[in-house]
Design a protein around this nucleic acid. Structure first.
Lengths: 316, 316
DNA sequence: CAATTTTCATAACGTAAAGGCATATAAGCT
DNA sequence: AGCTTATATGCCTTTACGTTATGAAAATTG
């Protein structure tokens, strides 16, 4: 004797509202519909649920027992509905975000922290990769959004990209570095310091080479390579080494006195930091919300940087 | 965003069974049906429930959360089904039984105790009344079954009656009464004892009068009247009073040494103890079960009485 | 106690969807 | 690559839900 769960809901609604009409209203149905459903259910199970021809509708003992179960169904249904609603509103779900290590660690992780403070029920699955891999993962739907520096002209087919910040790089060092804080520098002054190189498969490694070539340095001493942002800042802090890092990463870490930028203008690649995603895969609400969040966070970051530069507290 | 509870059940079944086919089987539905229901649900809420085109069907986070609620629905549904099944089988429910006080207290209450030991989830609503009232209550559906002495010829229209036991009365006294245990008695011997009369509105009161008239006693001393069976047995135990009681009541109480019957044959009314019910009101399963139970109990009682009489341990 | 109101039951009709079978399609295994 | 197995789809039938209109019975009110 299988019972339709909806019927249990109806029973409990009628019992709790104390009447067929009110019960129907609470369920958002018409009174005749509920009446008929009850009649059919009674016929099916072969038992009265309400005493016949009694005006304050009198539930049977069986009916009262079923109403108890109906309340459980109704409660489960309500939480399910709220789960779905939160999901649709983009307040719960998963976002699989990938990005280049230094950006993710230096810039995006702070934004993700903010995001999760606002939307604690959205789980972030973060991974590290470089542009080519990220594109592949986006296309194979293994990733919802990628955040990386990108030449908009080299954008793969089937992917969209929205720029967030200039891809400008700077020469970074410890704030306690002998050269830090000097108002201006000549290239010859940086020639003799050791260099920290990003992982060789990183685009930043190519940037480092081209930067140094651009300022006439074809030969340079690499004292360390391959670490993440955290190891690099730690090593920079305890040495006189220099490195090339994205401008925004250095900017974000200025507060913690972890990094300083040298006032040397270097040529930077034709790239922008931005979000990349696949328009073929229609994004989940949580992903949409995440992308919007990142957009506004970067919008804020841009104005902060602009003010900083106007205050001349931050020199190139 | 209202969710159909049945869909929650389906989701949990698929998740728990680890596949669409197995889930469908567990639900007793065909695989295509379940597949399409899931597809429609996904379309309606605008979210994937299972990763598309993955062979070990991979539930979404949202799906897993909904499956939790689905399990609650399924559980509630199962207990509801079992409630209904028990009700249909007559293993739960209510039986409203009415009867004449002495029979109920002396005979039926023991049977009800047995019944409730076998069917603890059937609630018995017992009430006391005499035949006329019982008939009325049966006809107004306020009672499911009545147990009372009845002249089958005087049975009201629309009611059925099935006899259980002869309506024979006996003269009862305390087992310690001076007359108790004597093999035979003359009427003159009982003339001088005081009498306990049943309530004046009771049929038994009329019986008492006619019995005494039948043995030539027109004048008798009533020392007590109006009590229930319990008070009467208590008073009998502590006095030399006599009374008239149904045979079966005295028989049932013989074990507790509460009553004895005098070996005087008295004329008894044209009545049988039996069950009365309304064939118009189709009985609930619990009521049917109760009636059947009473039938077999009385069947047993009849054979017990018969054996007793054959053993001559019980004399008239 | 008759009139009125309220509440439930029924009727008739249209529609959504669930159910089944047959079958196509795609994923994973050998 | 081919086979097996699991899921998706197409097509059709049936059930039951939804609506509005209306009838009937119980409770309330004057």
């Amino acid at each position: 004797m299988k019972i339709d769960s909806r019927h249990l809901e109806i029973i409990s609604a009628i019992v709790d509202q104390g009447g067929l009409t009110e019960g129907a209203e609470a369920l958002g149905k018409s009174q005749p519909s509920v009446s008929r459903t009850v009649a059919m259910l009674e016929a099916r199970i072969g038992a009265r649920l309400f005493e016949k021809n009694r005006r304050p509708l009198q539930p049977t003992d069986l009916c009262l027992a079923l109403a108890v179960e109906g309340r459980k169904v109704l409660a489960a249904n309500q939480t399910a509905s709220s789960l779905v609603r939160r999901y649709i509103d983009g307040k719960s779900g998963v976002v699989r975000v990938g990005g280049t290590p230094f950006f993710m660690d230096g810039v995006i992780s702070n934004m993700i922290a903010e995001f999760q403070r606002a939307f604690p029920d959205i789980r972030i699955e973060q991974s590290y990769a470089y542009a080519a891999d990220l594109s592949r993962q986006l296309e194979s739907k293994a990733l919802d959004v990628a955040i990386c520096p990108m030449d908009p002209n080299a954008l793969p087919e089937n992917l969209k990209f929205s720029a967030l910040l200039d891809g400008r790089n700077v020469i970074a060092c410890s704030p306690t570095h002998p050269l830090a804080g000097k108002p201006s520098l000549r290239l010859s002054e940086i020639a003799n310091y050791p260099w920290i190189a990003p992982p060789v498969d990183s685009p930043l490694y190519q940037d480092l080479r081209s930067v140094l070539a651009g300022i006439g340095m074809t030969d340079f001493k690499v004292s360390f390579s391959g670490g993440s942002l955290a190891s690099i800042t730690n090593i920079l802090a305890r040495s006189d080494a220099l490195t090339v890092l994205p401008y925004s990463v250095v900017f974000m870490l200025r507060r913690q006195q972890a990094l300083a930028a040298l006032p040397i203008r270097i040529n930077h690649p034709q790239r922008s930091l931005g979000q990349m995603w696949s328009p073929l895969q229609n994004a989940r609400p949580s992903v949409k919300r995440f992308r919007r969040f990142i957009d506004t966070e970067f919008s804020n970051l841009r104005t902060t940087i602009m003010k900083h530069e106007q205050n001349a507290l931050w020199r190139r």
